[in-house]
Nucleic acid binder design. Structure first.
Lengths: 247, 247
DNA sequence: GAGTTCAGTGAACATCTGTACACCCCAGCG
DNA sequence: CGCTGGGGTGTACAGATGTTCACTGAACTC
């Protein structure tokens, strides 16, 4: 009987929590098969806990991509990470709570994105070009996060749904104040700014959803989606400008 | 032991399949409690089958509203309808197949809607006003269907997801040919028409989603959403027109 | 170096799931 | 009239699920 075995995460994160006894493979206990011991750097207890916690979040994100969070079981996540189901409770009260944390993480990467756009020069055509480019770039880099938000936005877990809705609303408001700073719109009513921001946000959401739906091995499709998104933004902005401010 | 008992659907549809023996209440068999026999009109076998089938579809739609279709079990649906789980297979191979049928049903009501809009006169302001009004009206009348589409559009059942995506694409194409018939757009390239139709469809989808998210007892919120939707449509159309046709 | 903390284990539970199987009984057919 | 097709029933099973409980042993604290 080996004394130290190391659970290995199924994929990407590769983060495996420290294991001390046997391997867990379902309720039926089995002897741990002989496992090549991997030497790990001695980590502090807190660090190891954080590592497992992250592994759980990663696993949740990965599994939610396949089945919807509502259909992902606590046991499934635990199995994926390589810990016993009951150990899950050391980190989260429920899958739902884990989901809420995923919402936060996902929107954090989104905020990073908007900051990047905001940093550019305030010329309309550049903004359009930049925005779409940055968006696509971030969808690539944070595909899982965007995917999670898109799916759970109307998914089966009410608390998660509401959290996402709230974040999107914040987003919309921020965009509205950004728009107010543009030269052509400084005289607009806040109402009109809100309406415009709402339209833009939803057009971008739709673009993200189309990007996510496009198979990864079709760069032509992606180019097409980008072109469409640019034109739509142009239509919206040009329209808003020439329509002026009728109230 | 009573000879004829009648299962009663839990809610709306009220459609109950004919029952001949005992009541089913889980795997543990129980004697059917004395039930007041409800006199039913003698239906043909085919009619009774259709009735049960409809009851299953209704139950599926209702349950999917609470939990996402992927999280709804065959047993749950059967229980809701008042039949034994195994009887489900007499009507559908799986919950997924039932879901695909729900997609068809939902889009049928959507098509009815678009037909109504198309019937109106082709004047821009009237179109905008009409479209939004008809949309809201139909969301009220077919709330469950719209809800189903919104949720399952990115839900956990791949086949259902794809079916919905396909239907939306058809929609977009139809809208594009409609737009081509408008006086201001008869010279547009089909590419631009497609882009514009895409934008409009997604704006409307977003509107529906906002309507569905709004609590039913807040008519003021609904009015606000309608106003926003109208303005957005105006912005889009005005923008498209004044932007002209740069390619 | 002794004592405490706590992330992880493993067994047990009640309950739920999809599906196979044999049966039953009535409408609808000849 | 009797036969039969098929919507319905019950039973059964193997597997999955959330949660409880008592436990262990290495990392921390003093």
């Amino acid at each position: 009987m080996c004394s130290v075995t190391v659970g290995v995460g199924r994929s990407s994160g590769g983060s495996a929590p420290g294991r001390t006894r046997g391997a867990y493979d379902g309720d039926v206990s089995e002897q741990a098969t002989g496992v090549t011991a991997v030497v790990e750097p001695p980590l502090s207890r807190a660090a190891r806990k954080e590592r497992t916690r992250q592994a759980l979040l990663d696993a949740g994100l990965r599994l939610a991509a396949d089945h919807t969070l509502a259909a992902v079981s606590l046991r499934h996540i635990a199995r994926e990470v390589g810990i016993v189901p009951t150990a899950f409770y050391r980190h989260f009260d429920s899958v739902e709570q884990l989901g809420l944390e995923l919402v936060d993480a996902s929107f954090a990467s989104l905020r990073a994105m908007i900051r990047e756009v905001r940093a550019g020069e305030p010329e309309v055509n550049t903004i359009v070009r930049n925005s779409v480019e940055v968006l696509v770039e971030h969808v690539h880099a944070q595909r899982a996060h965007f995917h999670f938000i898109a799916r759970e936005r109307f998914g089966g877990v009410p608390a998660v749904r509401e959290a996402i809705g709230h974040q999107l609303q914040l987003f919309e408001r921020e965009l509205a104040t950004d728009l107010a700073r543009l030269p052509t719109m400084d005289t607009w009513s806040s109402e009109d700014l809100r309406v415009l921001a709402n339209l833009i946000v939803h057009a971008m959401v739709a673009t993200v959803e189309q990007l996510l739906a496009a198979p990864a091995n079709r760069p032509d499709l992606e180019q097409e989606i980008m072109r469409t998104a640019r034109r739509q933004l142009q239509m919206i902005i040009v329209g808003a400008a020439s329509w002026g401010n009728p109230r």
